[in-house]
Structure formats: structure tokens, C-alpha cells
Design a protein around this nucleic acid. Structure first.
Length: 460
RNA sequence: UCCCCGAUAGCUCAGCUGGUAGAGCGGGUGGCUGUUAACCACUAGGUCGCAGGUUCGAGUCCUGCUCGGGGAGCCA
């Protein structure tokens, strides 16, 4: 085994005077006449370790190898640092250049544009900003599991390959084992009898429909997994492969669901503030967004609740400032969403009870016969973060809805059957993991919170 | 898919109304009380995205293409 001290421990736990061995990558190096300095990162924490090398003890060749990007091993003693920038440092006794980095190493000790870094996804991970993002991505994942586990939810795993296209949730990638350059045909049509599943199959765009039966058996469940969408959307909010969290709760009405969402967001924000202090401070300084203020907003004020109808009224009062006029019956455009959360309510807001005709068949029809028991949680600056609804549990109404929307009944027979026997009120919501991470990191392009992003027309 | 913007040294950018390229960082060399994106001096480094066109002359103007960025719609 390679003896190893994480820089995180060297900076926080190792006693002054103790001998340590660290492995990492050189961020910057500075040569003085008598001493050389190198900042080393091993990814274990946001901070770099300053290593001090007495030039008399090392030959010029190995010091020259101490270039930005090089992988090194340093053995030395932990001492208090006389410098202002760091409380402690390591005085090196041994230096080994494990993986040299010649001068054409693309990452330099200067600011790079995110656009440039996107061209080197395999190397940008070693930069401070991406280290922060991906450590936070980990902590956010754990926080999500913790929240649900502590509340008695079960983590469930519905299929990612499905036969239905989840009704309007997005464009699908088709899954097939048929040879695309010689597709078998029968009567001029593709003969899916010969395909792997003997029918058309897709990558799931939402596992909600399959999750509902799990909730109607286990009570409270959640999913947290990848989703694939072939949407023709080419924007900083869209990826073709991303992760979603979809909780589903039996015997929860819409208002229970909103309460849970609010607790969820509050828990996540506090957890991240606690675990990612250095990362958040780093991003707050580095990224053009008031990252810290976002956490304050998520943890301090209760979220506002407003009906769709009320929101439309507020938008209509200010309709001259929009490109598209708000009108009852239509959805909100992104400028409307940002205005509502940013200007009207000044913080996260639940907008509830959208017109039913604009919503999918599985949402529960309200008593007014016009609106659905659903909610979107809107955040300032970014718009919708969470979308949820109470599901239609009444067999007749669900069937009517499926009928009127012209959906193939056979595809959803199993779904409808969960209402035929032991139906129960239940609710759920869905949340895009990366969009939440974008908000919590201040990163404004989804491609920069995914290690190797897959988007329309791009797979670097 | 539509609408805008952009592409100049390894990176970040400057280059006015057309007169054939500059800086900072990074690299190299030398200097320098323990530095903090260290500093100082010198130095190397460019088919100005690609293809056409206008012009005596194009990094600069025009057209097409490629790639990148932002916005809209659709969505998470």
C-alpha cells in the first residue's frame, strides 16, 4: 500500500511536527533564491497545501519538474506557516515527480474561460472550480439520500428502459438491437416483432409512472437516477443525460407534498452550508452569482404559496414588461417565472393549480373542474426547480382523461389498474438534480456541473 | 428548430473609418530576504477558424460553411 495522507487531513488534523506523505498535483510553483514554494492539491478539499522546499536540499532538475500540472509525491514535516494565506504548510524532505507536466499543459495558473475548459473535460476536473463543483455534487447526492432515509422513504429503482414514452415529458431515445442499416420490415413497416423486446422500447424520460405503484405498496419512496431525453433543446439548462429525483408518497395530498418539498430544500441547503463551507466560499468569490445569498434565501424565509390564477393576475399587472403576454390557460414563459420569484414574491414561490388542460393526464383534477392539483416551485433567477402534483386516484376520472387525450389505453393498462384495486390519494414531485446543483454552486451552464456532458450534437 | 453575438500567439484579449500584427499570462534564460495569480530584465512564439469575393492592398468589408456562446420555444 502506498502510504498516504490526504491534504484535507494534513491541513486540519495532523499535528504540528508530524511527518506526512502527500500525493497530488502542482497548482502553482514559485522559485526564490533560497526556497521554492509549491501549492499542491489532491482533490480531497478546496484548499491547496503549500509545500516549502529548501533549494540547497534539492537539485535544480527535480525543482524544475515542479511545474503546474505535475503529479508529485512530497514527504515532509507539518509546520505552522509564517505566511498569511495559510495557517500551516509542509517543509519538504523528499520530492518525487511522479507524472511530469510539460509546458504545453493546458491548465495554467490563471483564469480560464468556461468555454475553453469545456474543450478539455478530462483535465478541467483538476481546476479549483471543478473540484468545488464535483465535491459539492457528491455532498448533494448524500444529502438527498439522508433526507429521505431519515424520513422513512425507501430508495427504489424503476426501469430505465420502458415501453411507453411517459406521455409528453420529453422526446425519447429509442432502444433497439435491430441493425439500423438493414431494419427488418413487414408490409412496409418496421417489424418490431424481431426487435429485442418484441416491441418498441425507449430510454425512460421519467420513472414517475413506474414509481407510483411502488408508493402504493411501500408508502413513501424516491428515485434518484439518470434520465435520457432527446429534446431538440440546445440551451444552458438542457442535457441529454441528466439525473432526476422523483419522490412519490401514498396518502399525501398536494399540500403535504409542498411541505415536504420545502423541508427538503431547507435540509439540503443547511447540509451543504455545513459540509461545503470552503467550496461555497470559493465559488461565491469566483462565480458571477451571489451564491451565499441563495443559501440564506433557502434556509431563512418560508416559501410563498400562490395560485396560478393569482400569479397570472400579478403578471397581467406588469404585462408591458414582457415579450409574451401572460394569459390564463397558457403556461409561463421563463421571463414570467423569473419575474414571479424575483420581483413579485422575492424568493422561492410555489405556484399551484395550473389549468388542467395544459397538464398531463395523471394530475388530479380539482373540484372546480378546470385546474389540476399541481405545483411548480419557482426560484429567483432560474425559474422552475421542482414540479409536482397530486395524482389522479379516481378510476373513472383517470380513464376519462386518458380517453380525451387520445392516449393508447393498452399502454397504460397496468397504471390504471392501480386505481381499480385499493386506490389511494398520493402525490409526488420531480426535480432535476443538475439544475439544483447549478443553483447551489452558482454555475450557470449545466455542462459545467456534469463531468462529461452529453448534449444535443455534442459528446466530447 | 428559430433569432442575435463571436472566432487574432499555448491561454485571456487589444488591433479606430481597409495600408500585411500587439500586450498580459504561460514557456526559455538570468536576477531576486519566505513566496501567495510572487516580482524585475531579456527572449522565443502567429497560414488572424475554413472557402470564395470586392480592392492596388483584407485581421479589418461582403457571401457561404464550420465551430463556440447567449436568448426563444420545448422541457427537468
Amino acid at each position: 500500500m502506498i502510504p498516504h495522507d490526504d491534504i484535507r487531513d494534513v491541513l486540519n488534523e495532523s499535528g504540528i511536527g508530524s511527518d506526512v506523505t502527500v500525493y497530488g498535483w502542482v497548482r502553482t510553483a514559485r522559485m526564490g533564491k533560497n526556497v521554492a514554494f509549491a501549492s499542491i492539491s489532491d482533490g480531497s478539499c478546496q484548499e491547496n497545501l503549500q509545500v516549502v522546499l529548501n533549494r540547497k536540499s534539492f537539485d535544480d532538475d527535480s525543482l524544475k519538474g515542479l511545474a503546474t500540472g505535475a503529479a508529485v509525491r512530497v514527504c515532509g514535516t507539518v509546520v505552522e506557516s509564517p505566511g498569511r494565506e495559510q495557517p500551516r504548510e509542509v517543509h519538504a524532505e523528499e520530492l518525487e515527480i511522479i507524472g511530469p507536466a510539460p509546458e504545453d499543459y493546458p491548465l495554467q495558473k490563471k483564469k480560464h474561460t468556461m468555454e475553453f475548459l469545456r474543450t478539455i473535460p478530462h483535465l478541467r476536473l483538476r481546476s479549483g472550480i471543478f473540484g468545488a463543483v464535483f465535491r459539492m455534487r457528491h455532498h448533494l447526492s448524500i444529502a438527498i439520500h439522508r433526507f429521505f432515509d431519515e424520513r422513512g422513504f425507501f430508495y427504489v429503482h424503476p426501469p430505465l428502459i420502458t415501453a411507453s414514452d411517459a406521455e409528453g415529458a420529453g422526446e425519447t431515445f429509442q432502444v433497439t438491437s435491430l441493425p439500423l442499416d438493414a431494419v427488418p420490415k413487414r408490409d412496409g413497416e418496421v417489424d418490431y416483432e424481431q426487435d429485442y423486446f418484441r416491441r418498441k422500447a425507449f430510454l425512460s424520460v421519467s420513472v414517475q409512472l413506474e414509481t407510483e405503484p411502488l408508493a402504493l405498496a411501500l408508502g413513501k419512496v424516491y428515485t434518484f437516477g439518470p434520465t435520457f431525453r432527446a429534446d431538440p433543446s440546445d440551451t444552458r439548462w438542457h442535457a441529454s443525460e441528466f439525473w432526476m429525483i422523483e419522490p412519490e408518497m401514498a396518502f399525501y395530498d398536494l399540500s403535504d407534498s409542498m411541505e415536504l418539498i420545502e423541508q427538503f430544500i431547507g435540509f439540503i441547503a443547511s447540509y451543504m452550508l455545513d459540509r461545503c463551507r470552503d467550496e461555497i466560499a470559493f465559488l461565491d468569490e469566483r462565480v458571477d452569482a451571489d451564491v451565499r445569498d441563495r443559501y440564506r434565501m433557502l434556509t431563512e424565509e418560508p416559501f410563498v404559496r400562490a395560485s396560478y390564477t393569482e400569479a397570472v393576475e400579478r403578471l397581467t399587472e406588469a404585462s408591458n414588461r414582457f415579450e409574451t403576454r401572460p394569459r390564463w390557460g397558457g403556461g409561463f414563459s421563463s421571463e414570467h417565472e423569473r419575474y414571479l420569484a424575483g420581483e413579485v414574491y422575492g424568493g422561492p414561490v410555489f405556484v399551484t393549480d395550473y389549468p388542467a388542460q395544459a397538464k398531463p393526464f395523471y394530475m388530479r383534477l380539482n373540484d372546480d373542474g378546470k385546474t389540476a392539483a399541481c405545483t411548480d416551485l419557482l426560484f429567483p433567477e432560474v425559474g422552475e426547480i421542482v414540479g409536482g402534483s397530486q395524482r389522479e386516484e379516481r378510476l373513472d376520472l383517470l380513464q376519462e382523461r386518458i380517453e380525451s387525450m387520445g392516449i393508447d389505453r393498452e399502454d397504460y393498462r397496468w397504471y390504471v389498474e392501480t386505481r381499480r384495486w385499493g386506490t389511494a390519494p398520493h402525490s409526488g414531485f420531480g426535480l432535476g438534480f443538475e439544475r439544483l446543483l447549478m443553483y447551489l454552486t452558482g454555475i450557470d451552464n449545466i455542462r459545467d456541473v456534469i463531468p462529461f456532458p452529453r448534449t444535443l450534437g455534442r459528446m466530447v
